[in-house]
Design a protein around this nucleic acid. Structure first.
Length: 215
DNA sequence: CATGGGATTGACT
DNA sequence: GTCAATCCCATGC
């Protein structure tokens, strides 16, 4: 195969098809990168994923690092479910659970490019510029109406859905960098952003190509 | 049962 | 640039 990794079969579908569990049943870093360009939808409100981060129970920034507890049971459960939790007592964050049952891993959805339901997003977020509606993990759950009650639900069955990338648009240009807002394992370059997107969350950090060229 | 710490955001100096 | 809001949950007594 070429320098660009082959795409997972579950991602090679029409733009409207929902990603199935086997898409998520793979190394979380692969899923995090390939979720860029996919679409998150809830009740007709949707956006294109432009920023993700990977978390894995082998590193201390991941909630699952502490092992199986009531909180982490979703993370250790089957792939393709939503892991939704409250952050800083205020915000709700959405993740996609990855890797087989028994492994605690997930992709944090950090930013969307608003696609449909812009009026409802503005109603929930207040009048904002389009770049402010979904440019952060707490912002996008508010814009889409995602709540704690969605924790553990199947992302292939809804009400929160993730649809495959539109293959007709070609491979997205993806940059990698360190994760945002964590103190442990802060050096891992497990953040992925769509290059050139104006909808990425705040610090537009120093990012490097996700798939480095041979030297 | 008490405590401490966040995978953030928006308002303010 | 600084900082408070606010709640779930892991941990320890």
């Amino acid at each position: 195969m070429g320098a660009t990794a082959a795409q997972h079969p579950a991602a090679q579908q029409t733009a409207s098809s929902v990603l199935s569990a086997d898409f998520y049943d793979r190394p979380v870093l692969h899923v995090a990168r390939e979720l860029i360009g996919c679409v998150v939808e809830h009740a007709g409100v949707s956006g294109v994923i432009v920023e993700t981060e990977a978390y894995h129970d082998s590193e201390p920034a991941c909630h699952a690092f502490v092992g199986l507890t009531p909180r982490t049971s979703t993370l250790f459960g089957p792939p393709g479910r939503a892991y939704v939790y409250r952050s800083y007592g205020i915000h709700v964050l959405l993740n996609a659970v990855c890797e087989p049952s028994g492994v605690g891993a997930a992709v944090l959805i950090r930013a969307l490019d608003p696609l449909t339901g812009l009026a409802r997003m503005r109603a929930r977020r207040g009048l904002r510029r389009p770049e402010d509606l979904c440019s952060g993990p707490g912002k996008l759950t508010q814009a889409l109406g995602i709540e704690l009650s969605h924790n553990g639900l199947d992302l292939a069955r809804g009400p929160v859905l993730i649809r495959a990338r539109d293959a007709a648009r070609g491979e997205p240009q993806i940059l990698a960098g360190v994760r945002v807002g964590i103190t442990k394992a802060a050096d891992l370059p497990w953040r992925f952003c769509l290059a050139d997107s104006r909808h990425v969350s705040r610090p537009r950090p120093t990012l490097s190509p996700a798939e480095p060229r041979p030297r």
